[in-house]
Amino acid sequence: MYSEIANSTSMRRDADGAIIPADENNRDYQEFLAWRAAGNTPTPLPTPTLAEVKAAKLAKLAERRWRAETAGVTVNGLSIPSDAASQSKLTAAVVACVLDNAYSVNWKLADGTFQMLDHATLIAVAQAVRAHVQSCFDREAMLAGEIAAAADAAALAAIDIETGWPA
């Protein structure tokens, strides 16, 4: 059995979910044509609701924000990782720095090298990473609002979640 994909010339083979393009040279498409010539009719796939499409776009948006958030940040020429573990370790280092103004730490940079960070540099790095992470969440919140406000699938498709992220 096969299912029609709305607004597409491709078919889905129901047995394994394979998408079969309408290509006369494709063996799977030839099998589909023979199946249809035998009097069979593909089942139309249900069109997702606007709410389902919005939910899928919000999930993609969260993943896109995560990629931007964890891409790292450059502070005074230093390439600083900004993944969740690095953020947590940076927070701990800042706490130690606040408790001891003479505290410094040998910090591992994104390229794998180490750099000694003194009190002032450590504070600057922490503030820059925090600002970067927050700006990623701010971008996600703005786009999530646009997604929620989209009146139809065309308006939703027009929302670009790939560009405009902090570097």
Rank of each mutant, 00 (worst) to 15 (best):
103 Y>I: 00
108 K>E: 10
77 G>P: 04
68 A>D: 00
50 L>N: 07
94 V>M: 08
85 A>Q: 13
55 A>R: 12
111 D>L: 09
78 L>I: 05
62 A>V: 04
76 N>P: 07
71 A>R: 11
60 K>L: 07
69 E>W: 02
103 Y>A: 03
117 L>D: 04
93 A>R: 10
44 P>R: 04
63 E>K: 11
115 Q>P: 01
97 C>H: 01
116 M>P: 10
69 E>N: 13
52 E>D: 13
107 W>N: 03
68 A>S: 11
104 S>Y: 00
110 A>T: 11
83 D>P: 13
108 K>Q: 12
73 V>L: 06
79 S>W: 09
93 A>L: 15
63 E>R: 08
108 K>F: 01
89 K>A: 11
61 L>W: 03
104 S>R: 08
80 I>D: 01
107 W>S: 00
111 D>K: 11
43 T>H: 07
43 T>G: 04
112 G>E: 13
45 L>P: 00
68 A>I: 02
43 T>P: 05
80 I>S: 07
105 V>C: 01
98 V>H: 05
105 V>K: 03
58 L>A: 04
69 E>D: 15
96 A>N: 15
100 D>H: 05
80 I>T: 05
118 D>Y: 07
116 M>K: 15
82 S>H: 01
82 S>Q: 04
47 T>E: 14
84 A>G: 12
101 N>V: 03
43 T>A: 04
85 A>K: 09
63 E>T: 10
86 S>P: 02
49 T>R: 15
115 Q>F: 06
111 D>F: 06
97 C>N: 12
63 E>I: 00
110 A>R: 10
45 L>F: 02
100 D>N: 15
98 V>D: 13
118 D>S: 09
61 L>C: 01
46 P>F: 01
92 A>E: 15
47 T>D: 13
90 L>S: 00
74 T>Y: 03
89 K>W: 11
61 L>D: 04
78 L>N: 08
62 A>P: 06
117 L>K: 02
51 A>L: 12
43 T>R: 04
78 L>T: 05
43 T>I: 03
103 Y>H: 06
117 L>N: 01
57 K>C: 00
67 R>T: 03
78 L>S: 09
82 S>I: 02
48 P>T: 07
88 S>A: 13
70 T>G: 00
89 K>F: 02
62 A>E: 15
57 K>Y: 00
77 G>H: 07
45 L>S: 11
95 V>K: 14
100 D>T: 12
88 S>C: 08
75 V>L: 03
95 V>H: 10
43 T>F: 06
56 A>S: 14
81 P>N: 07
72 G>S: 08
55 A>P: 04
105 V>R: 06
60 K>V: 01
95 V>F: 09
54 K>M: 11
96 A>Q: 13
75 V>H: 02
89 K>V: 06
101 N>I: 01
49 T>I: 13
116 M>W: 04
75 V>S: 12
86 S>C: 09
61 L>E: 07
47 T>Y: 07
112 G>W: 01
100 D>E: 06
74 T>Q: 09
63 E>F: 01
84 A>I: 15
83 D>W: 04
117 L>R: 10
85 A>R: 14
99 L>A: 14
114 F>N: 08
114 F>W: 05
109 L>W: 05
78 L>D: 01
106 N>Q: 08
91 T>K: 15
89 K>S: 14
86 S>T: 08
58 L>Q: 09
96 A>C: 09
93 A>S: 12
70 T>W: 00
79 S>M: 12
